[in-house]
Simulated scan of single mutants.
Amino acid sequence: MELRQLKYFVGVAEAGSFTKAAAQLNVAQSALSLHVRQMEEGFGTQLLVRERTGVKLTSAGAKLLHHSRIILDQVSLAEQELTSKVKSPSGEVTIGIPSGAARVIGTELLTWAKERLPRVSLKIVEGMSGPIEEWMAAGRFNLAILYKTAESVGDTLVLAREEFCLVVPPNEPPYEDTIRLADLHAYPLAVPMRVNNVRRSVADVVAHHGCALNVRFEMDSLSTIISMVMDGKAYSILTPSAIQREVSLGQVRIVRIVDPVIIRSVVLAVNPKDERSFEVAAVRSLVPEVVKHLAESRKWPTIISEVEQVSGGAVAFKSA
């Protein structure tokens, strides 16, 4: 059986005539007659009794009509559900976001998701970059924003690139706008633990250039690190996005690290098992839009200013 044959059979049975059914279905009467005859041959039994005034169902035909209506109704429901799922995705999506990025994108992403994807329940899990990366690898999230070095972005979607800076307590040296990498050793630092991606990114560059850091405090708490800098107890190395609120209030200052500049990529990763999920795909498409908006409105201070094409054919927004 084909669904088309069932549809034609139901049309003829309900119309009570091949002529009427042909007009209603916009199909040639001869084609309808051929399909019904093929069904009768396939089942080995007569389904309709042809009379001068129309057609009547046999007992076998009545049973087939009952089943055909159920089958066609189920197909219609499936089509409606799948079409609706594509046009208006629904379900729960969990995204892991490192604390620094969450301070910038968290509220905006939730607001956009509520407006654009009202049937999607978006849940944000915030944490330090190390645990977020581990939890994503363990499959705990549908999506995750991760920090990567330029050499390790792979097939992920690059959302932005950020530059690390020395975070300085108010009214403390250095008073210049930049500081050389080799001069960082003069400042006591509060930094994330060694497993943290931020710490690894900086440490790799420092080691490569034969420099040293004066690490006094290690903790996996962005708020504590920022508080220590605000209180004048330590300096830190972070990206501007992580402390832009405190900078705008004059609670800390940022000094660019140069010779060389330390840059990281902010990427969006998807759990492989969710590649075909409509709701995950919808949020996955929304995140770059939000990042682009934040960058253009200067709410996310990044260093790239054009659209970037990355491997796998994905398009990533670069923002100034």
Rank of each mutant, 00 (worst) to 15 (best):
L3F: 09
L3P: 07
L6K: 05
K7T: 07
Y8V: 10
F9D: 03
A15M: 15
G16Q: 13
S17A: 05
A21K: 02
L25C: 07
R52V: 11
K56V: 13
K56F: 13
T58S: 09
A60Q: 13
G61Y: 15
K63W: 13
H67T: 07
L72E: 14
D73K: 12
Q74M: 10
V75F: 09
L82E: 14
L82R: 14
K87Q: 15
S88F: 08
S88A: 13
S88N: 15
P89N: 15
G100S: 15
V104M: 12
G106N: 06
E108Q: 09
W112Y: 09
A113I: 00
R116Y: 11
R116N: 12
R116L: 09
L117N: 04
P118A: 10
E126F: 02
G127F: 05
S129I: 03
P131L: 14
E133C: 12
M136T: 05
G139C: 04
N142T: 02
L157V: 07
V158W: 02
L159C: 00
F164W: 03
C165Q: 04
V168L: 03
P169D: 03
P170L: 04
P174N: 07
E176N: 15
T178P: 00
L181M: 15
D183H: 03
H185M: 08
R194E: 08
R194G: 12
N196Q: 14
S201I: 02
A203V: 09
V205T: 11
V206K: 01
A207D: 08
H209K: 11
C211A: 11
A212Q: 15
N214Q: 07
N214R: 03
V215Y: 03
M219H: 06
L222T: 02
S223P: 15
M228Q: 11
M228T: 03
G232H: 05
K233S: 15
L238V: 02
P240H: 01
S248E: 06
G250K: 02
I254V: 08
R256V: 04
D259Y: 09
P260N: 11
I263R: 06
V266E: 01
A269Y: 00
A269N: 01
D274V: 05
R276H: 08
S277D: 10
A282P: 02
L286K: 01
V287Y: 01
P288V: 07
E289T: 09
E289P: 01
E296P: 06
S297L: 13
R298H: 06
R298C: 09
P301F: 00
I303S: 14
E308D: 05
E308Q: 14
Q309N: 14
Q309E: 11
G313Q: 10
A316G: 13
F317G: 08
K318D: 09
K318W: 04
